[in-house]
């Protein structure tokens, strides 16, 4: 059953990604709405599965690192829907939804029968830790997309040959604001994730600094967040610098994740 549902969700995200790209080229309103309908459907289904799993007090979705990626796609879509509702940036979907699809696809099919984790591991701190950390990652993904869009739009404006991208993408100020807001939203999530993570490690392994699979990317992401926040606050990292630092930081975190899990 999970198998089928997972593929339905995956297919919905894939189709939504393709529709967002199609919308970029054709600019027909109905494509935009159809993409959102698919996205909403997939997201709703994923939320239901998550809620069901929480209610039976098993954590099959975050039993392994790989399945936490499936949850990451859920967090990315949640953050995307919030951002689109707040900022009405039509172009955002073409960038972030494919990333959510990739996160879901690389998660693979979750275990079909929910594995009841040992009581000690099933500690509520773990759930909290993972959800908060994932929302932090999702906010970083949003910042990355805003950063890429910023750099494309900046290049369009600097080159003085505004093309299709110029019309499709929003203004630099709006993209920079999105970047800054996502930073302010994501940083506390990630900080909490690290704190709850180390509390959980203390309960489970007896040490606050237990080295496990997810901690390196998490710490790296946290440092990049801190760097960006500091840069914005005291070094006047506006616009271009903030965008480039975000894109670079996201790639570093992603790379560390793959290096770490392989």
């Amino acid at each position: 059953m999970y198998n089928v549902l997972f593929h339905v969700i995956l297919f919905a995200y894939l189709l939504a990604s393709l529709l967002f790209w199609l919308y970029m080229g054709l600019r027909q309103r109905w494509i935009f709405y159809l993409a959102h309908a698919l996205l909403g459907g997939g997201f709703g289904l994923q939320t239901l599965i998550l809620g069901y799993n929480l209610s039976i007090r098993t954590f099959p979705l975050w039993g392994e690192v790989a399945t936490s990626l499936g949850l990451l796609s859920w967090a990315i879509i949640a953050i995307y829907l919030t951002a689109v509702w707040r900022y009405r940036i039509e172009a955002l979907g073409s960038f972030i939804v494919p990333l959510a699809f990739l996160a879901a696809a690389s998660a693979g099919v979750p275990v079909t029968t929910p594995v009841r984790l040992p009581l000690a591991v099933q500690h509520v701190w773990l759930g909290l830790h993972i959800v908060l950390a994932l929302l932090g990652y999702a906010a970083l993904t949003l910042m990355f997309c805003a950063g890429v869009m910023y750099l494309i739009q900046e290049r369009q404006l600097k080159s003085k040959r505004p093309g299709a991208w110029y019309h499709y993408l929003p203004s630099l100020t709006l993209l920079d604001e999105l970047n800054a807001k996502a930073l302010l939203l994501g940083f506390p999530f990630l900080t909490q994730g690290i704190v709850t993570g180390s509390v959980w490690a203390k309960y489970t392994y007896g040490s606050y600094l237990h080295w496990n699979l997810t901690s390196l990317p998490l710490l790296l992401a946290w440092f990049i967040y801190a760097l960006l926040l500091g840069g914005r606050r005291s070094l006047g990292w506006q616009g271009s610098k903030a965008a480039r630092a975000t894109v670079g930081g996201f790639i570093v975190v992603l790379a560390s994740y793959f290096v770490h899990t392989l």
């Binding site: 739009q153 404006l157 505004p162 203004s171 630099l172 100020t173």
Partner: peptide
């Protein structure tokens, strides 16, 4: 229009 693409 350009100004709006920079400053919103």
């Amino acid at each position: 229009e350009l100004a709006k693409k920079i400053f919103e």
